[in-house]
Write a protein that binds this DNA or RNA. Structure first.
Lengths: 196, 196
DNA sequence: CCTACCGATCGGTAGG
DNA sequence: CCTACCGATCGGTAGG
């Protein structure tokens, strides 16, 4: 039982890496089998097919994001704290699951129905959570009156590009990246004009 | 001659759409042929193979971006103007070539060597152009002292997510999106504290 | 988890 | 731009 679970974990980890490197469609079951070290046909004793592998990765990450935003909403109260924690959680999830995160962000399109629709629903739910934090900040008078859909989208855009450039073992820790991104999103590029 | 060119334009337009919808790897030459309305084998009288189709789209967009940043550097002088124009040009290019832009941003990974390396070089060159604008703003004392690599990356991240959500015929024009993104990147989410 | 295998589909070519 | 076709590879199954 334990060894089956281990095998499956290894399988998913290998898949995430390959799906990221080559894309889901360009990765064959034979590629996966070779990396895992078993025969292609043996994969089917662990999963029903290629699509299940993609589903397990995408929904696994979706659940982590869902838990992360729930945690933020449960613990913190004011919008700035919430946003800071939400950004930090988001960045940590991306950085500590780079391959899975990449697949979650870019390869979910290859999901088969009805999984695909359910996945989109979960993603929208998360996005809605971010929007609510921004709305809270506006209500508190702490954030600029802006289109909250637009603001949430721009925030998530900045965060979701991380797997494109982040290097494990590079100069920046997840916390450092989160802090810098949070500051950037909060205050922008422009230097405040000195009061003349 | 003119009809050959027209065919090729149509071919590239169809490819961009399919590569975006299904991904490069999942799109077959038969898919393309069917959409164009010719036999699969006939595609090879226009292009050498599937890879050339991807190259034409990716390098076509790369050239447009290259020209856009050159134009900005030629015409404008202060950093805020430059950045504003660079953002506007970038957004316009994305929005007016949504399918091609998507392929340019997401599917270039499937390029074969040596085209892939050359593509990355061009992309880095563009990114370098954006970094220089930011550096100019810092030198002018107009932008906050920040890591310019990080700032350029975050800026481009916000812009490059546009093809993921922008809807042709939606409520926002390219100019409106550019304006909002520019403001967001410049001043951030946070309301300025009133002087108490 | 393996051997043996299947039908379908792939990118691409020959020859006109 | 078409007909006819090729070898390679694909996801997946049967049976153990």
């Amino acid at each position: 039982m334990a060894s089956v679970t281990e095998r499956k974990k290894q399988l998913l980890s290998v898949c995430a890496r390959l799906f990221r490197e080559k894309g889901f469609s360009a990765t064959s079951m034979r590629d996966i089998a070779q990396e895992v070290g078993i025969e292609p046909a043996s994969l089917y004793s662990h999963v029903s097919g290629k699509d299940e592998l993609l589903q397990l990765i995408c929904f696994g990450m979706a659940e982590k994001f869902s838990l992360a935003i729930q945690e933020v909403n449960d613990i913190y109260f004011n919008a700035e704290e919430k946003l800071k924690m939400a950004v930090e959680n988001h960045v940590k999830l991306l950085v500590s699951n780079l391959d899975e995160a990449y697949v979650f962000l870019r390869e979910w399109r290859s999901l088969e129905q009805p999984g695909k629709s359910e996945f989109i629903r979960l993603r929208d739910e998360y996005e809605q959570g971010i929007r609510e934090i921004i709305q809270t900040g506006i209500d508190e008078g702490k954030f600029n009156e802006t289109d909250k859909h637009f603001a949430a989208l721009t925030l998530l855009s900045s965060l979701n590009w991380i797997p494109e450039w982040y290097q494990t073992g590079g100069t920046w820790s997840a916390e450092k990246v989160a802090e810098k991104l949070y500051q950037f999103v909060l205050t922008g590029l422009k230097k405040k004009d000195p009061i003349v």
